[in-house]
């Protein structure tokens, strides 16, 4: 009888595992949604972010290596040209091994949007939207919206000037008020809808120009530096194409919370 109960227990655990209830929260933190005004993006209107879970750390080389073992179609020699450029996984010496100079606990970089998207989907997650990413990233160590603090902005801008931070390891920066590490200070990160930023060279001539985004000099004149830091992020997003791979561009995943 006891045995039967145990069997039942095991089967139910296995079942729940299968439903991803267990894996859901591992390595992620809960971010309580809210309404806020992003610095750029939708012309200073309020956006609503629903509750979601976010990876505590950006995806590491080690984790990406595991993904490559199971998803051979994303290995360096096999990834389709449609989805990657020739820089894809440049710091890997072959399909499964990093260059000796790269660290397994550094964030994975040289990955395209398509690759990052596939990685997250494979985990039952997805890339964060710009609004979600910016929402989580406006926290400092103690406050969930630290955007008005001069020292928060100074720190971010100092990082923007620091070279080769992508070669650092994950988790060296302090965690923010949500419990998330490295949103600032390590690498830029892909967002699901990065292509909603209309600020490329082409877009100047062929889409409605977005004055909010466009006016870098006005940002510098602003009373605080926060606009400038955010402007940099939006400018980078606007200049990307989905198959680009860059040295200092990694990603992390999120998962919507369904109640």
């Amino acid at each position: 009888m006891k045995n039967g109960a145990f069997k039942f227990l095991i089967v139910s655990i296995a079942f729940f595992m299968h439903c991803e209830l267990f894996a859901q929260s591992e390595g992620m933190v809960y971010i309580e949604g809210s309404r806020y005004i992003p610095l750029y993006g939708r012309d200073s209107t309020v956006v609503e972010v629903k509750d979601f879970e976010m990876d505590i750390y950006p995806v590491s080389n080690l984790e990406y290596g595991d993904f490559l073992k199971k998803n051979t179609n994303w290995q360096k020699s096999k990834a389709l040209k449609l989805f990657t450029d020739k820089m894809y996984l440049t710091n890997w010496k072959n399909d499964l091994q990093l260059e000796a100079s790269a660290l397994s606990n550094s964030p994975v970089t040289y990955v395209s949007w398509f690759a990052a998207k596939a990685y997250c989907e494979c985990q039952g997650k997805r890339l964060p939207t710009i609004d979600e990413w910016e929402y989580a990233a406006m926290a400092d160590e103690t406050t969930k919206d630290a955007r008005v603090k001069p020292e928060y902005n100074k720190k971010i801008l100092d990082w923007y000037e620091a070279p080769r931070s992508n070669e650092n390891t994950i988790g060296m920066n302090a965690k923010n008020a949500w419990g998330v590490y490295d949103l600032h200070g390590l690498v830029w990160e892909w967002t699901l809808d990065f292509n909603s930023v209309l600020i490329t060279g082409e877009s100047r001539k062929d889409v409605d120009t977005d004055n909010n985004l466009f006016c870098g000099s006005a940002a510098i004149n602003a009373t605080d530096l926060m606009n400038y830091a955010a402007f940099m992020r939006y400018a980078i997003r606007g200049s990307l194409e989905a198959k680009y791979s860059m040295k200092n561009l990694g990603f992390r995943c999120v998962k919507p919370v369904t109640k």
């Binding site: 292509n195 930023v197 194409e241 989905a242």
Partner: peptide
Amino acid sequence: VREFANVLSVKYKEI
């Protein structure tokens, strides 16, 4: 649609 727009390098956002 998002994926296909990215294949075409088309940018768009809902206003």
